[in-house]
Amino acid sequence: MLPVHHLLYLGALLFTTGLMITIIKRNAIMVLLGLELMLNAANLNLIAFNQQTPGSPDGQMFALFVIVVAVSEVAVGLAIVLRVYRYFQTAVPDEIRELKD
């Protein structure tokens, strides 16, 4: 059995890194990468706690659902980024200042 606390520390590091990527980077695709990293940090915590209840797959089921939601999020997010890029010729959210035609 892996040490739970070290998995939790790794999850905290990944979550914090994802948050900093989301704040720092100006490109929308890099922001999506940061969001993926944060979701994976949450998944790592779920798996770490699932280890503590042997014989019960509850934590793994939650992790699977989180993965599916992450896939949906990145698919729709990238579609929106592509559409915004085709319309405004930029993928930097700060440079988009108007909402309608």
Binding site: L2, L7, L10, N43, L44, I47, A48, N50, Q51, G59, Q60, A63, L64, I67
Partner: peptide, 10 residues
């Protein structure tokens, strides 16, 4: 890490 934590399917 998931494999090492006995969560092979995930």
């Amino acid at each position: 890490l998931y494999v090492l934590a006995y969560a092979e399917f995930v």
